[in-house]
Amino acid sequence: MELLGLFNYWVFAVLLMVGFYAVIAKPNMIKKLLGLAIFQAAVFLLYITMDKVEGGTAPIIQAGVDAIYSNPLPQVLILTAIVVGISTTALGLALVVRIHEAYGTIEEDETQQKDLEE
């Protein structure tokens, strides 16, 4: 039970590492960006998990209903973080397009090789 109760946190840790691995190990820049996106998504999960209150419902106040609500703040925060994440990915992809135009490749080792040849 203890283990299962922390299921989301386990997923968070695993996703974080999967993303991190891709960022570090893949020479392809698009794959790096995908890894980065996974890395960030893991953190989103962390925030979303922490706001869950057991037995709580969506935090929409209705007249006459007395309910337990989940904490809405982390959801709002993470909405912002998702926007930041999308912007980062978009900018990263734009950079990759420019790199492809300038170098003719999006493999990091090959761009380094071309820089050295200059």
Partner: peptide, 13 residues
């Protein structure tokens, strides 16, 4: 461009 890409990855991490 490549320098920025590196910066972007490390900065985001």
């Amino acid at each position: 461009l490549t320098a920025t890409f590196k910066y972007l990855i490390m900065g985001t991490i």
